[in-house]
Each structure stands twice: as C-alpha cells, then as structure tokens.
C-alpha cells in the first residue's frame, strides 16, 4: 500500500508542472539510494558471520595440516609452546567446562531465586529498585571481576583450602557465577512476568500458597524462557575470557578438582596473543584452531536456545 502511495504521488507530480516533476524524480532516486544503503547495512551482519568463519577456518587449515583433527580433539596433553610439543585440546576443554560448571552451580539457583522473588513476592516499587541494581553486575567490565577474584575471593578461600594456589578454577568460577546471575534472573523473570495473572489467580483461588503457585504454575508456564536463560548463561560462561585469564591460572590440566590451577580455551588464546607470536607459525595457528572449536561450541548452545524458544515457547 505504501508503494502505491509513492507511485500515485509521482504521477500527480508528473501531471503537474515540470519543475515539480524533477523534484519528484530526485526524491525517487534519493529513496532508491537510501534503500540500497540500508540493505547493505543489514547484509553486513551476514558478512560478519562469514568473516568469522572464513578467518577461523583459513588460519586453522595450516594447523590441521600438521596436526590431525583426531589428535587435536582426543589428545590429553596440551603443550604447544613447550618441547616436547603436544596438541591435545582436551585439557583446555576440561578446564573450560570445570569453570563453567562452577559458575552455573552458583548462578542458576541464585538467579532463579531472584527471578521468583521479583515476579511472585516483591511489591512493584521494590522490584523497580532491585532489578536495575542487580543488572549493574552484568555491566561491570570483566577485568574488574578478575581483580576481585585474585585480591579478595582467592585469599579468602585459601583460609579454607590451605594448600590452594592463588590462581584456581574455584575462585574464577565463583566470581563468574556472580557475573552471570543477572543474565539468568533477568531473562527468567521476564518469562515469569509474561505468565498471565489469571493463571496464577486461578491457583490462588484453589487455596495454593505463593510458593505452590510459583512452583506449579509460574515455573512450568515460563519453562522455555527459563531454559533459554540458562543456556545463554552457559554460552556466556564458556566464552568469558578475562576472569579466567586473570584468576584461573595458566596450566592446562585434565582435572575436575576445583582448587587446582587450570587453563581455559579463552585464556590460552589471550596468553598466546600477549606474546608477539610470528604470523603464520604453528603456534600462531593454534589460537585459531582453539578459537574455531570455541566458536562451534557456543554456536551450538545459541542454536539450541533458539530451538527451545521456537519449539516450546507459549504465547498467552
């Protein structure tokens, strides 16, 4: 319909005087150019994804010529810059998973507790204060969390685990958990608030307590949003870089012991970027191979979360 209006407009001008007709043409050309520019802007996002894949794959090819994919994915020793060199990525993957699991154990129960409190118990005025205050946590730069982990959390934990090093998976994971609390709580709360009041009121009318309403009505109805928030928090934790670089250590190790010093995939990439590794060397290419694996892991999580939304999302 909008297109029709444009057409009839230029026709009217064409029937009118000539000066106005060139004005109308200029408007059409300008509009055309603008539309093409805007389309290019939108297509740039696709170019970004292509750029990510091309840059990671093209640089990893050199790596995978020398190291087989099988050796990379199943090897249990990661010493790419020490002799004897060994390129088994599993210690980095295990380190990443260890920190991620610790952070999720912290963030999911607390984030869910906050979401239930805000959506079911808190009066509107209190909600309006608490929500933005907690979201500050998500806006604090990650180097600040790293600083917090090694200057306060690690020394405090060392009083409990006396043989623990200052750099360890536990304090990095705990602090990362604090950081991702608002991701879980915000998205879950949005989903819980979207559950229609009438459903909750129905349960209240049957004599349910607030907790029973939350447990048996709100959470099941908001489940797709809650699961999405947990998956996104997981994906964020896997890709988080500065906290683990600062606080988790730099010793790739196959261990699920939380008080050990470990290294994650992201921390390895930063460690190698800090040195001026010569372009094109095998060491330089390792960061792209690890980056490619990291990208694929987070991509799977993201697609999974979108699938959950499209498959399970209920509109009321």
């Amino acid at each position: 319909m909008e297109q029709d209006l444009t057409k009839s407009k230029s026709k009217i001008i064409w029937l009118g005087d000539r000066a106005k007709s060139t004005w109308g043409k200029r408007q059409n050309i300008e509009g055309r150019a603008a539309q093409i520019f805007l389309l290019i802007c939108a297509l740039l996002s696709i170019a970004t994804t292509v750029g990510i894949v091309v840059s990671l794959v093209s640089q990893s090819v050199g790596f995978f010529k020398e190291v087989s994919i099988w050796e990379f994915l199943t090897g249990t020793r990661w010493t790419p810059i020490l002799i004897p060199r060994s390129y088994g990525v599993l210690p980095l993957v295990v380190g990443t998973l260890l920190v991620t699991i610790i952070s999720v154990i912290v963030a999911v129960p607390i984030g869910m507790g906050i979401a239930i409190f805000l959506s079911t118990y808190a009066p509107e005025q209190l909600r309006r204060i608490i929500k933005p205050v907690l979201e500050i946590l998500a806006g604090i730069p990650t180097v600040v969390y790293g600083y917090f982990a090694i200057t306060l959390v690690s020394p405090m934990l060392q009083k409990v685990f006396t043989n623990m090093l200052i750099f360890n998976a536990l304090s990095a994971g705990l602090v990362m958990g604090l950081m991702i609390i608002p991701m879980v709580s915000s998205l879950s709360e949005d989903a819980m608030m979207a559950v229609p009041q009438s459903l909750k009121e129905g349960a209240f009318a049957l004599g349910a307590t607030r907790f029973e309403v939350a447990l048996k009505v709100t959470i099941p109805s908001a489940l797709s949003g809650i699961i999405t928030s947990i998956i996104l928090a997981l994906s964020r934790a896997i890709g988080e870089t500065m906290i683990v670089t600062i606080a988790a250590g730099a010793t790739p190790k196959m261990t699920f012991n939380p008080i050990d010093s470990i290294q994650t995939m992201t921390a390895f990439i930063v460690q190698l970027s800090l040195g001026e590794t010569p372009h094109g060397s095998l060491e330089y290419n390792t960061i792209f191979a690890v980056g490619l694996l990291l990208f694929l892991m987070t991509l799977i999580m993201n697609l999974l979360s979108q699938w959950v939304v499209s498959r399970w999302h209920r509109r009321y």
Partner: peptide, 16 residues
C-alpha cells in the same frame, strides 16, 4: 547469534 559470539572470537576475526 552474533550477539552471543564470545568477544575473543571477534578479536581473532579482527586479527586475521
């Protein structure tokens, strides 16, 4: 999807 790609990956894109 781009919104949740880890930031270090963008660093590798820029580097290349």
């Amino acid at each position: 999807n781009l919104a949740s790609v880890p930031s270090i990956i963008y660093g590798l894109l820029g580097l290349t």
